[in-house]
Amino acid sequence: MWRCVAVAGVLLLIAGCQSTHEDLIAKGYPPAFADGFDDGCSSGRQAAGAITGEFRKNVPRYLKDNNYAEGWGDGFRQCQAMRENQDREDHRNSHWDEREKAWQQQKDQDAARAYHSP
């Protein structure tokens, strides 16, 4: 349940102008959770191969502060998954465009043959 709330928060955040950190705090999450989520999210994007994003983890805080650790883990998993899903979607769309172009070219060639055949 807790994770579902976090996922919903992230999805709502994407549509808004508020930072993730501000949004989580406004929704009642502890500041330590929001700090961890930000660090984990950046790390998750980096792990998924994004150019933007860097691995960030305050290890001493992670080991001592359960809210930071939970936020970091949630942020890492959610942002890594969102980045990987976006990459798959981009890949699928680029292949669809190639198929669309090939179909259009074949259609044009067939039409040209039909118009020019004796």
Rank of each mutant, 00 (worst) to 15 (best):
V5Q: 00
N93S: 06
D23K: 01
W2M: 01
A114Y: 14
H116A: 00
D23R: 03
P31L: 08
F33H: 05
T52Y: 05
C4D: 00
A111P: 00
P118F: 04
L11I: 15
G73Q: 07
G36Q: 08
R45V: 12
H91M: 14
D65F: 07
P30Y: 09
Y62I: 03
R88G: 02
G53W: 09
N67W: 05
D87T: 15
P60C: 07
A6E: 00
D39S: 12
A111E: 04
K57V: 12
N85C: 12
G36P: 04
A34I: 14
Q46P: 00
M1E: 11
D65Y: 08
D74Q: 05
R77P: 01
D87K: 15
A6C: 00
P31F: 11
V7L: 12
A81T: 13
I25K: 08
L24N: 04
G71Y: 04
P60G: 06
A15T: 11
Q105A: 07
G40N: 13
Q80I: 05
D39R: 14
R77C: 07
A26D: 05
R88H: 11
Q109P: 00
D108R: 13
G36S: 05
N85S: 14
R113Y: 01
Y68G: 03
Q109G: 02
S94V: 14
E54G: 01
D74H: 07
Q80K: 14
G28R: 06
D74K: 05
R3H: 05
R61Y: 02
D23N: 01
W103D: 02
Q18N: 01
D38G: 09
W103M: 02
G53R: 08
A48Q: 13
Q109E: 11
W2Y: 04
R56V: 15
G36H: 07
A47D: 06
V10H: 08
K101R: 11
N66R: 06
S43V: 15
I14D: 11
K27Y: 02
N58D: 13
N93V: 14
S117I: 15
R77L: 08
I51N: 09
R88M: 10
H116N: 03
D38S: 13
R92C: 01
N85G: 13
D90F: 13
V59G: 00
C79T: 10
L11Q: 12
R99A: 09
K57R: 14
D97Q: 15
A48L: 13
D74G: 01
N67C: 04
C4L: 04
A50C: 13
